[in-house]
Design a binder for these strands. Structure first.
Lengths: 248, 248
DNA sequence: CGCCTATTTGATCTGATTCAAACAATGTGG
DNA sequence: CCACATTGTTTGAATCAGATCAAATAGGCG
Protein backbone atom coordinates (compact mmCIF):
# COMPACT_ATOMS: atom_id res chain seq x y z
CA UNK A 1 0.00 0.00 0.00
CA UNK A 2 1.50 3.33 -1.10
CA UNK A 3 1.90 5.96 1.56
CA UNK A 4 -0.59 8.74 1.00
CA UNK A 5 2.08 11.33 1.58
CA UNK A 6 4.06 10.04 -1.38
CA UNK A 7 3.89 11.98 -4.64
CA UNK A 8 2.73 9.87 -7.60
CA UNK A 9 5.88 10.97 -9.37
CA UNK A 10 8.19 9.61 -6.66
CA UNK A 11 8.91 6.47 -8.66
CA UNK A 12 9.75 8.63 -11.66
CA UNK A 13 12.13 10.78 -9.64
CA UNK A 14 13.83 7.71 -8.19
CA UNK A 15 14.20 6.25 -11.65
CA UNK A 16 15.67 9.44 -13.11
CA UNK A 17 18.06 9.80 -10.19
CA UNK A 18 19.36 6.34 -10.94
CA UNK A 19 20.68 7.58 -14.24
CA UNK A 20 21.29 11.31 -13.75
CA UNK A 21 21.61 14.04 -11.13
CA UNK A 22 18.58 16.22 -10.56
CA UNK A 23 18.63 19.72 -9.11
CA UNK A 24 16.21 20.55 -6.28
CA UNK A 25 14.35 22.80 -8.71
CA UNK A 26 13.92 19.96 -11.14
CA UNK A 27 12.71 17.62 -8.42
CA UNK A 28 10.16 20.19 -7.24
CA UNK A 29 8.95 20.70 -10.78
CA UNK A 30 8.53 16.95 -11.22
CA UNK A 31 6.69 16.64 -7.92
CA UNK A 32 4.37 19.45 -8.95
CA UNK A 33 3.28 17.68 -12.14
CA UNK A 34 -0.47 17.18 -12.19
CA UNK A 35 -1.04 13.43 -12.38
CA UNK A 36 -4.31 11.54 -12.53
CA UNK A 37 -3.73 8.26 -10.75
CA UNK A 38 -5.70 5.16 -11.62
CA UNK A 39 -5.72 1.47 -10.80
CA UNK A 40 -5.79 -0.75 -13.88
CA UNK A 41 -6.24 -4.50 -13.91
CA UNK A 42 -3.93 -6.75 -15.92
CA UNK A 43 -4.10 -7.35 -19.66
CA UNK A 44 -5.59 -3.94 -20.37
CA UNK A 45 -4.41 -1.65 -23.14
CA UNK A 46 -3.45 1.80 -21.88
CA UNK A 47 -3.03 3.18 -25.40
CA UNK A 48 -3.32 1.42 -28.69
CA UNK A 49 -1.54 1.49 -32.05
CA UNK A 50 -3.06 4.29 -34.13
CA UNK A 51 -4.15 6.37 -31.14
CA UNK A 52 -3.34 10.07 -30.95
CA UNK A 53 -2.95 10.48 -27.23
CA UNK A 54 -3.04 13.81 -25.38
CA UNK A 55 -1.44 12.36 -22.28
CA UNK A 56 1.42 10.09 -21.26
CA UNK A 57 1.31 7.09 -18.94
CA UNK A 58 3.54 6.91 -15.90
CA UNK A 59 3.95 3.46 -14.41
CA UNK A 60 3.65 3.82 -10.65
CA UNK A 61 3.24 0.17 -9.74
CA UNK A 62 3.22 -3.06 -11.74
CA UNK A 63 4.54 -4.14 -15.12
CA UNK A 64 3.50 -2.87 -18.54
CA UNK A 65 4.65 -3.90 -22.01
CA UNK A 66 4.82 -2.29 -25.42
CA UNK A 67 3.88 -4.54 -28.30
CA UNK A 68 2.61 -4.85 -31.81
CA UNK A 69 0.75 -7.63 -33.58
CA UNK A 70 1.43 -9.14 -36.99
CA UNK A 71 -1.21 -9.36 -39.72
CA UNK A 72 -1.23 -13.06 -38.94
CA UNK A 73 -1.96 -12.34 -35.30
CA UNK A 74 1.44 -12.97 -33.77
CA UNK A 75 2.48 -10.63 -30.99
CA UNK A 76 5.93 -9.17 -30.49
CA UNK A 77 6.66 -7.46 -27.19
CA UNK A 78 9.26 -4.69 -27.51
CA UNK A 79 9.87 -3.81 -23.90
CA UNK A 80 8.81 -4.36 -20.34
CA UNK A 81 8.41 -1.31 -18.15
CA UNK A 82 8.69 -0.97 -14.42
CA UNK A 83 7.67 1.70 -11.91
CA UNK A 84 9.09 5.11 -12.76
CA UNK A 85 8.94 4.57 -16.52
CA UNK A 86 6.93 6.65 -18.95
CA UNK A 87 6.85 4.17 -21.82
CA UNK A 88 5.05 6.53 -24.16
CA UNK A 89 6.91 9.83 -23.76
CA UNK A 90 7.45 9.49 -27.47
CA UNK A 91 3.83 10.50 -28.03
CA UNK A 92 4.96 14.03 -27.19
CA UNK A 93 6.90 14.07 -30.46
CA UNK A 94 5.08 11.57 -32.67
CA UNK A 95 1.41 12.30 -32.96
CA UNK A 96 0.24 8.83 -33.95
CA UNK A 97 1.30 5.88 -31.85
CA UNK A 98 2.85 3.07 -33.91
CA UNK A 99 2.43 0.40 -31.23
CA UNK A 100 0.30 -0.46 -28.25
CA UNK A 101 0.95 -0.26 -24.54
CA UNK A 102 -0.74 -2.62 -22.13
CA UNK A 103 -0.56 -3.85 -18.56
CA UNK A 104 0.73 -7.32 -17.92
CA UNK A 105 0.02 -7.21 -14.19
CA UNK A 106 -2.48 -5.14 -12.22
CA UNK A 107 -1.01 -1.64 -12.19
CA UNK A 108 -1.17 1.78 -10.70
CA UNK A 109 -0.83 4.22 -13.57
CA UNK A 110 -0.51 7.99 -13.60
CA UNK A 111 -1.81 9.93 -16.58
CA UNK A 112 -0.04 13.19 -17.35
CA UNK A 113 -1.33 15.66 -19.91
CA UNK A 114 1.07 16.47 -22.74
CA UNK A 115 0.65 20.19 -22.12
CA UNK A 116 1.92 19.80 -18.57
CA UNK A 117 5.00 17.92 -19.74
CA UNK A 118 5.64 20.54 -22.40
CA UNK A 119 5.43 23.27 -19.81
CA UNK A 120 7.78 21.32 -17.59
CA UNK A 121 10.34 21.06 -20.38
CA UNK A 122 9.99 24.74 -21.13
CA UNK A 123 10.63 25.71 -17.54
CA UNK A 124 13.33 23.08 -16.96
CA UNK A 125 14.99 22.72 -20.37
CA UNK A 126 17.62 20.35 -19.03
CA UNK A 127 14.89 17.82 -18.35
CA UNK A 128 14.35 17.62 -22.10
CA UNK A 129 17.82 16.15 -22.32
CA UNK A 130 17.10 13.77 -19.46
CA UNK A 131 13.99 12.43 -21.14
CA UNK A 132 15.63 12.35 -24.54
CA UNK A 133 18.34 10.28 -22.92
CA UNK A 134 15.70 7.96 -21.49
CA UNK A 135 14.23 7.31 -24.92
CA UNK A 136 17.73 6.68 -26.27
CA UNK A 137 18.35 4.04 -23.62
CA UNK A 138 15.02 2.56 -24.63
CA UNK A 139 16.32 2.30 -28.16
CA UNK A 140 19.57 0.76 -26.93
CA UNK A 141 17.52 -1.96 -25.26
CA UNK A 142 15.63 -2.50 -28.50
CA UNK A 143 18.92 -3.01 -30.29
CA UNK A 144 20.12 -5.53 -27.77
CA UNK A 145 16.87 -7.45 -28.05
CA UNK A 146 17.13 -7.34 -31.82
CA UNK A 147 20.62 -8.80 -31.62
CA UNK A 148 19.25 -11.59 -29.48
CA UNK A 149 16.15 -12.34 -31.52
CA UNK A 150 18.08 -12.24 -34.78
CA UNK A 151 21.33 -13.87 -33.84
CA UNK A 152 21.26 -15.75 -30.54
CA UNK A 153 19.79 -19.16 -29.77
CA UNK A 154 16.90 -19.71 -27.39
CA UNK A 155 18.92 -20.47 -24.29
CA UNK A 156 21.13 -17.42 -24.66
CA UNK A 157 18.11 -15.24 -25.33
CA UNK A 158 16.18 -16.36 -22.27
CA UNK A 159 19.22 -16.05 -20.02
CA UNK A 160 19.89 -12.60 -21.42
CA UNK A 161 16.37 -11.35 -20.78
CA UNK A 162 16.47 -12.58 -17.21
CA UNK A 163 19.83 -10.87 -16.68
CA UNK A 164 18.44 -7.65 -18.08
CA UNK A 165 15.31 -7.68 -15.94
CA UNK A 166 17.32 -8.54 -12.86
CA UNK A 167 19.75 -5.71 -13.52
CA UNK A 168 17.08 -3.14 -14.25
CA UNK A 169 15.00 -4.06 -11.24
CA UNK A 170 18.08 -3.95 -9.08
CA UNK A 171 18.92 -0.50 -10.44
CA UNK A 172 15.62 0.86 -9.14
CA UNK A 173 16.09 -0.80 -5.77
CA UNK A 174 13.84 -3.83 -6.14
CA UNK A 175 16.49 -6.50 -5.60
CA UNK A 176 16.98 -8.25 -2.25
CA UNK A 177 19.01 -11.41 -1.68
CA UNK A 178 19.57 -12.03 -5.37
CA UNK A 179 15.81 -12.01 -5.77
CA UNK A 180 13.62 -9.66 -7.78
CA UNK A 181 9.88 -9.52 -8.37
CA UNK A 182 9.23 -10.74 -11.91
CA UNK A 183 5.59 -11.26 -12.81
CA UNK A 184 5.90 -12.46 -16.38
CA UNK A 185 4.32 -15.53 -17.87
CA UNK A 186 6.36 -17.84 -20.08
CA UNK A 187 4.04 -16.85 -22.86
CA UNK A 188 5.01 -13.19 -22.45
CA UNK A 189 8.68 -14.12 -22.39
CA UNK A 190 8.13 -15.96 -25.66
CA UNK A 191 6.42 -12.96 -27.23
CA UNK A 192 9.32 -10.79 -26.14
CA UNK A 193 12.00 -13.12 -27.47
CA UNK A 194 10.31 -14.41 -30.61
CA UNK A 195 9.95 -17.92 -29.22
CA UNK A 196 7.01 -20.25 -28.67
CA UNK A 197 5.75 -20.73 -25.13
CA UNK A 198 6.62 -24.39 -25.27
CA UNK A 199 10.18 -23.68 -26.20
CA UNK A 200 10.56 -21.04 -23.50
CA UNK A 201 9.42 -23.64 -21.03
CA UNK A 202 11.95 -26.22 -22.13
CA UNK A 203 14.69 -23.60 -22.18
CA UNK A 204 13.90 -22.53 -18.63
CA UNK A 205 14.14 -26.14 -17.56
CA UNK A 206 17.61 -26.27 -19.03
CA UNK A 207 18.65 -23.13 -17.15
CA UNK A 208 17.19 -24.54 -13.94
CA UNK A 209 18.98 -27.79 -14.63
CA UNK A 210 22.23 -25.85 -14.73
CA UNK A 211 21.39 -24.42 -11.29
CA UNK A 212 21.57 -20.89 -12.63
CA UNK A 213 18.25 -19.64 -11.30
CA UNK A 214 14.97 -20.31 -9.60
CA UNK A 215 11.92 -18.61 -11.06
CA UNK A 216 8.63 -19.55 -9.52
CA UNK A 217 5.51 -17.61 -8.82
CA UNK A 218 6.38 -13.99 -9.23
CA UNK A 219 9.97 -13.88 -8.08
CA UNK A 220 13.23 -14.63 -9.81
CA UNK A 221 16.27 -15.69 -7.81
CA UNK A 222 19.65 -15.78 -9.45
CA UNK A 223 21.79 -18.58 -8.07
CA UNK A 224 24.95 -17.97 -10.07
CA UNK A 225 25.18 -14.55 -11.62
CA UNK A 226 28.52 -15.15 -13.25
CA UNK A 227 27.45 -18.22 -15.14
CA UNK A 228 24.01 -16.83 -15.95
CA UNK A 229 25.53 -13.68 -17.41
CA UNK A 230 27.91 -15.84 -19.39
CA UNK A 231 25.11 -18.07 -20.65
CA UNK A 232 23.20 -14.95 -21.73
CA UNK A 233 26.23 -13.13 -23.16
CA UNK A 234 25.09 -10.33 -20.90
CA UNK A 235 27.06 -7.10 -20.62
CA UNK A 236 25.07 -4.33 -18.99
CA UNK A 237 26.81 -1.56 -20.92
CA UNK A 238 23.86 -1.04 -23.22
CA UNK A 239 21.63 -0.13 -20.29
CA UNK A 240 23.78 2.98 -19.71
CA UNK A 241 23.11 2.79 -16.00
CA UNK A 242 26.39 4.29 -14.90
CA UNK A 243 25.76 7.94 -14.08
CA UNK A 244 29.45 8.65 -14.59
CA UNK A 245 28.98 7.32 -18.06
CA UNK A 246 26.52 9.86 -19.32
CA UNK A 247 27.58 12.58 -21.76
CA UNK A 248 28.89 15.78 -20.19
CA UNK B 1 30.13 14.75 -58.42
CA UNK B 2 28.77 17.12 -55.77
CA UNK B 3 28.57 20.77 -56.66
CA UNK B 4 31.22 22.72 -54.78
CA UNK B 5 28.72 25.43 -53.94
CA UNK B 6 26.63 22.94 -51.99
CA UNK B 7 26.84 22.96 -48.21
CA UNK B 8 27.82 19.61 -46.72
CA UNK B 9 24.69 19.87 -44.58
CA UNK B 10 22.37 20.20 -47.57
CA UNK B 11 21.43 16.52 -47.42
CA UNK B 12 20.66 16.93 -43.72
CA UNK B 13 18.47 19.95 -44.35
CA UNK B 14 16.60 18.13 -47.12
CA UNK B 15 16.10 15.15 -44.86
CA UNK B 16 14.79 17.25 -41.98
CA UNK B 17 12.48 19.17 -44.27
CA UNK B 18 10.95 15.89 -45.36
CA UNK B 19 9.66 15.36 -41.85
CA UNK B 20 9.28 18.88 -40.40
CA UNK B 21 9.17 22.56 -41.27
CA UNK B 22 12.35 24.55 -40.72
CA UNK B 23 12.52 28.31 -40.22
CA UNK B 24 15.03 30.31 -42.30
CA UNK B 25 16.99 30.90 -39.10
CA UNK B 26 17.20 27.20 -38.42
CA UNK B 27 18.30 26.49 -41.98
CA UNK B 28 21.02 29.13 -41.74
CA UNK B 29 22.22 27.71 -38.45
CA UNK B 30 22.39 24.24 -39.95
CA UNK B 31 24.27 25.52 -42.98
CA UNK B 32 26.74 27.28 -40.72
CA UNK B 33 27.65 24.09 -38.86
CA UNK B 34 31.37 23.40 -39.14
CA UNK B 35 31.72 20.04 -40.86
CA UNK B 36 34.86 18.16 -41.73
CA UNK B 37 34.11 16.26 -44.92
CA UNK B 38 35.89 13.04 -45.74
CA UNK B 39 35.70 10.25 -48.30
CA UNK B 40 35.59 6.80 -46.76
CA UNK B 41 35.81 3.52 -48.60
CA UNK B 42 33.35 0.70 -47.98
CA UNK B 43 33.40 -1.68 -45.04
CA UNK B 44 35.08 0.81 -42.74
CA UNK B 45 34.00 1.46 -39.18
CA UNK B 46 33.26 5.11 -38.51
CA UNK B 47 32.85 4.56 -34.79
CA UNK B 48 32.98 1.38 -32.82
CA UNK B 49 31.17 -0.13 -29.85
CA UNK B 50 32.82 1.14 -26.69
CA UNK B 51 34.10 4.38 -28.24
CA UNK B 52 33.48 7.69 -26.52
CA UNK B 53 33.19 9.94 -29.52
CA UNK B 54 33.50 13.73 -29.46
CA UNK B 55 31.88 14.14 -32.84
CA UNK B 56 28.90 12.87 -34.82
CA UNK B 57 28.86 11.43 -38.34
CA UNK B 58 26.68 12.95 -41.02
CA UNK B 59 26.10 10.73 -44.03
CA UNK B 60 26.48 12.90 -47.11
CA UNK B 61 26.68 10.20 -49.74
CA UNK B 62 26.50 6.40 -49.64
CA UNK B 63 25.04 3.87 -47.21
CA UNK B 64 26.10 3.18 -43.66
CA UNK B 65 24.83 0.63 -41.15
CA UNK B 66 24.69 0.31 -37.40
CA UNK B 67 25.45 -3.13 -36.03
CA UNK B 68 26.64 -5.25 -33.18
CA UNK B 69 28.32 -8.64 -33.09
CA UNK B 70 27.48 -11.62 -30.89
CA UNK B 71 30.06 -13.35 -28.70
CA UNK B 72 29.88 -16.14 -31.25
CA UNK B 73 30.72 -13.72 -34.04
CA UNK B 74 27.30 -13.29 -35.61
CA UNK B 75 26.44 -9.82 -36.82
CA UNK B 76 23.10 -8.11 -36.45
CA UNK B 77 22.52 -4.94 -38.43
CA UNK B 78 20.08 -2.56 -36.73
CA UNK B 79 19.59 0.05 -39.39
CA UNK B 80 20.67 1.31 -42.76
CA UNK B 81 21.30 5.01 -43.13
CA UNK B 82 21.10 7.19 -46.17
CA UNK B 83 22.32 10.70 -47.03
CA UNK B 84 21.10 13.29 -44.55
CA UNK B 85 21.15 10.93 -41.58
CA UNK B 86 23.23 11.39 -38.46
CA UNK B 87 23.12 7.80 -37.22
CA UNK B 88 25.02 8.56 -34.05
CA UNK B 89 23.35 11.70 -32.70
CA UNK B 90 22.74 9.59 -29.66
CA UNK B 91 26.39 9.97 -28.73
CA UNK B 92 25.48 13.49 -27.65
CA UNK B 93 23.52 12.01 -24.77
CA UNK B 94 25.13 8.63 -24.17
CA UNK B 95 28.83 8.89 -23.60
CA UNK B 96 29.80 5.34 -24.51
CA UNK B 97 28.59 3.91 -27.79
CA UNK B 98 26.85 0.56 -27.39
CA UNK B 99 27.14 -0.44 -31.03
CA UNK B 100 29.26 0.18 -34.09
CA UNK B 101 28.69 2.26 -37.18
CA UNK B 102 30.28 1.34 -40.48
CA UNK B 103 30.09 2.09 -44.18
CA UNK B 104 28.61 -0.51 -46.47
CA UNK B 105 29.38 1.42 -49.64
CA UNK B 106 32.04 4.04 -50.34
CA UNK B 107 30.78 7.15 -48.59
CA UNK B 108 31.17 10.85 -48.16
CA UNK B 109 30.94 11.52 -44.45
CA UNK B 110 30.84 14.78 -42.53
CA UNK B 111 32.20 14.88 -39.00
CA UNK B 112 30.61 17.40 -36.66
CA UNK B 113 32.00 18.17 -33.23
CA UNK B 114 29.61 17.61 -30.34
CA UNK B 115 30.26 21.10 -29.02
CA UNK B 116 29.02 22.62 -32.27
CA UNK B 117 25.82 20.61 -32.15
CA UNK B 118 25.30 21.56 -28.53
CA UNK B 119 25.72 25.23 -29.40
CA UNK B 120 23.29 24.77 -32.26
CA UNK B 121 20.67 23.29 -29.94
CA UNK B 122 21.22 26.09 -27.44
CA UNK B 123 20.70 28.75 -30.05
CA UNK B 124 17.86 26.94 -31.82
CA UNK B 125 16.13 25.02 -29.06
CA UNK B 126 13.38 23.81 -31.34
CA UNK B 127 15.98 21.80 -33.24
CA UNK B 128 16.44 19.71 -30.11
CA UNK B 129 12.87 18.52 -30.61
CA UNK B 130 13.50 17.88 -34.29
CA UNK B 131 16.50 15.70 -33.56
CA UNK B 132 14.80 14.02 -30.63
CA UNK B 133 11.99 13.23 -33.02
CA UNK B 134 14.51 11.77 -35.47
CA UNK B 135 15.87 9.40 -32.86
CA UNK B 136 12.33 8.39 -31.94
CA UNK B 137 11.60 7.48 -35.54
CA UNK B 138 14.81 5.49 -35.47
CA UNK B 139 13.44 3.57 -32.52
CA UNK B 140 10.12 3.06 -34.32
CA UNK B 141 12.04 1.43 -37.15
CA UNK B 142 13.85 -0.78 -34.65
CA UNK B 143 10.49 -1.92 -33.31
CA UNK B 144 9.19 -2.75 -36.75
CA UNK B 145 12.33 -4.74 -37.52
CA UNK B 146 12.00 -6.53 -34.20
CA UNK B 147 8.44 -7.49 -35.06
CA UNK B 148 9.67 -8.89 -38.35
CA UNK B 149 12.69 -10.76 -37.01
CA UNK B 150 10.73 -12.17 -34.10
CA UNK B 151 7.40 -12.94 -35.69
CA UNK B 152 7.42 -12.91 -39.48
CA UNK B 153 8.69 -15.55 -41.89
CA UNK B 154 11.57 -14.99 -44.27
CA UNK B 155 9.56 -13.97 -47.31
CA UNK B 156 7.54 -11.39 -45.41
CA UNK B 157 10.68 -10.02 -43.79
CA UNK B 158 12.59 -9.57 -47.01
CA UNK B 159 9.60 -7.99 -48.75
CA UNK B 160 9.12 -5.67 -45.79
CA UNK B 161 12.70 -4.49 -45.78
CA UNK B 162 12.60 -3.74 -49.48
CA UNK B 163 9.36 -1.82 -49.02
CA UNK B 164 10.92 0.18 -46.23
CA UNK B 165 14.06 1.05 -48.13
CA UNK B 166 12.05 1.96 -51.19
CA UNK B 167 9.78 4.22 -49.16
CA UNK B 168 12.59 5.92 -47.28
CA UNK B 169 14.67 6.52 -50.38
CA UNK B 170 11.62 7.87 -52.15
CA UNK B 171 10.98 10.23 -49.22
CA UNK B 172 14.37 11.84 -49.73
CA UNK B 173 13.86 12.14 -53.47
CA UNK B 174 15.92 9.20 -54.69
CA UNK B 175 13.13 7.34 -56.46
CA UNK B 176 12.59 7.53 -60.23
CA UNK B 177 10.39 5.21 -62.30
CA UNK B 178 9.74 2.88 -59.38
CA UNK B 179 13.49 2.46 -59.10
CA UNK B 180 15.77 3.34 -56.20
CA UNK B 181 19.52 2.94 -55.68
CA UNK B 182 20.03 0.07 -53.24
CA UNK B 183 23.61 -1.06 -52.78
CA UNK B 184 23.17 -3.86 -50.30
CA UNK B 185 24.54 -7.37 -50.58
CA UNK B 186 22.33 -10.34 -49.80
CA UNK B 187 24.67 -11.03 -46.93
CA UNK B 188 23.92 -7.60 -45.44
CA UNK B 189 20.20 -8.15 -45.89
CA UNK B 190 20.60 -11.41 -44.01
CA UNK B 191 22.43 -9.73 -41.17
CA UNK B 192 19.68 -7.13 -40.97
CA UNK B 193 16.85 -9.65 -40.96
CA UNK B 194 18.41 -12.41 -38.92
CA UNK B 195 18.60 -14.77 -41.90
CA UNK B 196 21.40 -16.70 -43.58
CA UNK B 197 22.67 -15.42 -46.91
CA UNK B 198 21.58 -18.61 -48.61
CA UNK B 199 18.04 -18.23 -47.41
CA UNK B 200 17.90 -14.57 -48.40
CA UNK B 201 18.93 -15.64 -51.85
CA UNK B 202 16.22 -18.26 -52.17
CA UNK B 203 13.64 -15.87 -50.77
CA UNK B 204 14.56 -13.20 -53.30
CA UNK B 205 14.14 -15.76 -56.05
CA UNK B 206 10.63 -16.41 -54.79
CA UNK B 207 9.81 -12.70 -54.82
CA UNK B 208 11.24 -12.38 -58.31
CA UNK B 209 9.25 -15.43 -59.35
CA UNK B 210 6.11 -13.61 -58.23
CA UNK B 211 7.11 -10.68 -60.49
CA UNK B 212 7.11 -8.32 -57.54
CA UNK B 213 10.50 -6.76 -58.11
CA UNK B 214 13.78 -6.67 -59.97
CA UNK B 215 16.89 -6.13 -57.92
CA UNK B 216 20.14 -6.36 -59.77
CA UNK B 217 23.38 -4.52 -59.44
CA UNK B 218 22.72 -1.55 -57.25
CA UNK B 219 19.17 -0.68 -58.12
CA UNK B 220 15.84 -2.00 -56.96
CA UNK B 221 12.78 -1.72 -59.19
CA UNK B 222 9.37 -2.42 -57.74
CA UNK B 223 7.09 -4.01 -60.32
CA UNK B 224 3.95 -4.30 -58.24
CA UNK B 225 3.88 -2.11 -55.16
CA UNK B 226 0.48 -3.26 -54.01
CA UNK B 227 1.34 -6.92 -53.95
CA UNK B 228 4.85 -6.34 -52.59
CA UNK B 229 3.50 -4.27 -49.71
CA UNK B 230 0.96 -6.98 -49.06
CA UNK B 231 3.60 -9.71 -49.13
CA UNK B 232 5.66 -7.67 -46.66
CA UNK B 233 2.72 -6.65 -44.46
CA UNK B 234 4.07 -3.16 -45.02
CA UNK B 235 2.31 -0.11 -43.62
CA UNK B 236 4.46 2.99 -43.66
CA UNK B 237 2.86 4.51 -40.57
CA UNK B 238 5.81 3.62 -38.36
CA UNK B 239 8.13 5.74 -40.47
CA UNK B 240 6.19 8.84 -39.38
CA UNK B 241 6.89 10.51 -42.69
CA UNK B 242 3.72 12.53 -42.83
CA UNK B 243 4.57 16.07 -41.70
CA UNK B 244 0.93 16.62 -40.83
CA UNK B 245 1.28 13.70 -38.52
CA UNK B 246 3.86 15.13 -36.18
CA UNK B 247 2.91 16.29 -32.71
CA UNK B 248 1.82 19.93 -32.44
C1' DC C 1 -14.75 -27.84 -4.90
C1' DG C 2 -14.47 -26.55 -9.44
C1' DC C 3 -12.91 -23.12 -12.81
C1' DC C 4 -9.44 -20.77 -15.14
C1' DT C 5 -4.94 -19.86 -16.29
C1' DA C 6 -0.16 -21.25 -16.55
C1' DT C 7 3.15 -24.82 -16.87
C1' DT C 8 4.76 -29.10 -18.47
C1' DT C 9 5.33 -33.27 -21.45
C1' DG C 10 5.40 -35.93 -25.75
C1' DA C 11 5.39 -36.53 -30.70
C1' DT C 12 5.78 -34.71 -35.13
C1' DC C 13 6.86 -31.45 -38.61
C1' DT C 14 9.21 -27.63 -41.07
C1' DG C 15 11.48 -23.31 -42.11
C1' DA C 16 15.74 -22.09 -42.04
C1' DT C 17 20.78 -23.23 -41.25
C1' DT C 18 24.94 -25.23 -42.55
C1' DC C 19 28.33 -27.04 -45.49
C1' DA C 20 30.29 -27.36 -49.87
C1' DA C 21 30.91 -26.18 -54.38
C1' DA C 22 29.91 -23.94 -58.82
C1' DC C 23 29.11 -19.74 -61.17
C1' DA C 24 28.88 -14.80 -62.35
C1' DA C 25 30.30 -10.30 -62.15
C1' DT C 26 33.52 -6.84 -61.17
C1' DG C 27 37.84 -4.96 -60.81
C1' DT C 28 43.15 -5.07 -61.17
C1' DG C 29 47.66 -5.27 -62.79
C1' DG C 30 50.64 -6.64 -66.39
C1' DC D 1 42.78 -5.97 -73.46
C1' DC D 2 43.19 -10.23 -71.39
C1' DA D 3 44.29 -13.40 -67.25
C1' DC D 4 43.56 -13.63 -62.67
C1' DA D 5 41.79 -12.56 -58.16
C1' DT D 6 38.11 -11.14 -55.46
C1' DT D 7 33.64 -10.64 -54.06
C1' DG D 8 28.89 -11.77 -54.50
C1' DT D 9 25.30 -14.91 -56.13
C1' DT D 10 23.34 -19.31 -56.95
C1' DT D 11 22.52 -24.40 -56.46
C1' DG D 12 22.14 -28.84 -53.99
C1' DA D 13 21.97 -31.92 -50.04
C1' DA D 14 21.89 -32.88 -45.23
C1' DT D 15 20.69 -31.42 -40.75
C1' DC D 16 18.65 -29.10 -36.86
C1' DA D 17 16.62 -25.68 -33.76
C1' DG D 18 12.53 -24.43 -32.78
C1' DA D 19 7.41 -24.50 -34.11
C1' DT D 20 3.17 -26.76 -33.92
C1' DC D 21 -0.38 -29.74 -32.24
C1' DA D 22 -2.52 -32.08 -28.59
C1' DA D 23 -3.18 -33.35 -24.12
C1' DA D 24 -1.95 -33.79 -19.21
C1' DT D 25 -0.80 -31.58 -14.92
C1' DA D 26 -0.43 -28.05 -11.53
C1' DG D 27 -1.62 -23.68 -9.13
C1' DG D 28 -4.61 -19.96 -7.61
C1' DC D 29 -8.73 -18.33 -6.29
C1' DG D 30 -13.81 -17.19 -5.78
Amino acid sequence: MARLSQSPTQALITKLESITDLTPGEIDALRALPVRVQEVRDDQDLVREGDRPTHCCLVIEGFVARYKVTDKGKRQIFSFHTPGDIPDVLSLQLKTLDHSLGTITPCTVGFIQHEHLRELFQRQPRLTDVFWRETLIDAAIFREWMLGIGRRDAKTRVAHLLCEMFTRLKAVGLEKNNTVPLSLTQNEVGDALGLSTVHVNRTLQALRGDSLLVWEGRTLTVLDWGRLAEAGEFDKGYLHLDRKNRAA
